[in-house]
């Protein structure tokens, strides 16, 4: 279970202050949505959690250890674009992580190990709704399917922390709702903490356990350079969502909501999880 403690975090590019004095504690298994206007540094903050960028000042501690200064397999990421590798099929994309971890020289597995991994990957692809698309290249998949693929690819590494950078921002509303359902289910079933950057408030409220808003307290033109954004709002969702438990308002309701006969709660999880309701 992964807890994050961020203390006195600053990020500056030269004279420009992007983030100032960010203090935040994220509980294990939380699903945190970062919201805020464009250019307020929420993506920069996510990149620092990822290790893609370094903080100018301050500390990020994950499970009692300072965060490594470069990206690693303990933190998975899904971007809005470019999250999957265009030169690999869906199956190869999902198998890549474990292959790279096991074969440090060739980056490929062979024989029985490969078959076992392929079975695992096929199962995960089916879980994210990509059964039958194993042999397709990402360019042959729709935007929503590419993001499902990216999620599967990341989950193969069983990351402790999953970072999402506007992952569903480019999708159509209908597709987005479907992938929200998937995202909720994955968060319930996989033991990970999720931090998601989003522009979409509905999305934030539909998925998160807690919403963190970034903004610049001082936003006059002459102040913009020297004062960065910081956390201005910290909203806990109520009634609280708990990982592994389904709350009634998160029940995945059939899109034909007017028809009361069709009102139904779809089956919850596909696998038993720790701490699920008796």
């Amino acid at each position: 279970m992964t807890a994050l403690t961020i203390q006195g975090l600053w990020k500056e590019y030269g004279a420009q202050v992007v983030l100032e004095n960010v203090n935040l504690t994220i509980a294990p298994r939380a699903f945190v949505a970062l919201v805020g206007p464009s250019g307020c540094g929420k993506t920069t903050f996510l990149r620092m959690l990822l290790g893609q960028e370094r903080a100018t000042r301050g500390t990020i501690v994950m499970d009692g250890e300072p965060l490594p200064s470069e990206p690693g397999p303990d933190r998975g990421v899904v971007y809005q674009r470019y999250s999957v590798f265009p030169h690999m099929t869906a199956l190869q994309n999902v198998m890549l992580g474990p292959e790279l971890r096991a074969a440090r020289l060739t980056g490929r597995l062979w024989g029985a190990a490969r078959r076992k991994l392929a079975d695992e990957a096929v199962a995960l692809l089916a879980e994210v709704g990509l059964a039958g698309a194993e042999a397709k290249y990402p360019a042959q998949l729709s935007g929503g399917m590419q993001q499902r693929l990216a999620l599967a690819q990341t989950l193969m590494m069983r990351p402790k922390l999953l970072l999402l950078d506007e992952p569903f921002g480019a999708l159509d509303p209908g597709i987005r709702t479907e992938i929200h359902t998937l995202m909720r289910r994955l968060w319930h079933e996989h033991a990970m903490t999720v931090v998601m950057v989003t522009h979409d408030m509905r999305e934030a409220f539909a998925l998160a356990t807690r919403i963190i808003a970034f903004d610049r307290p001082r936003n006059r033109p002459e102040e913009r350079e020297r004062y960065g954004a910081t956390i201005t709002n910290d909203i806990a969702i109520w009634p609280p969502r708990v990982a592994g438990r389904q709350t009634i308002y998160d029940a995945d309701i059939d899109p034909v909501q007017d028809d009361l006969n069709r009102f139904a709660i779809t089956a919850g999880t596909t696998r038993p999880t720790e701490g699920s309701l008796p």
């Binding site: 990822l50 690693g72 397999p73 990421v77 971007y79 999250s83 590798f85 890549l96 990351p159």
Partner: peptide, 11 residues
């Protein structure tokens, strides 16, 4: 993004 993604896949 691709390079960072590969790093998170332990490359």
């Amino acid at each position: 993004e691709q390079i960072v993604k590969a790093e998170t896949l332990s490359a």
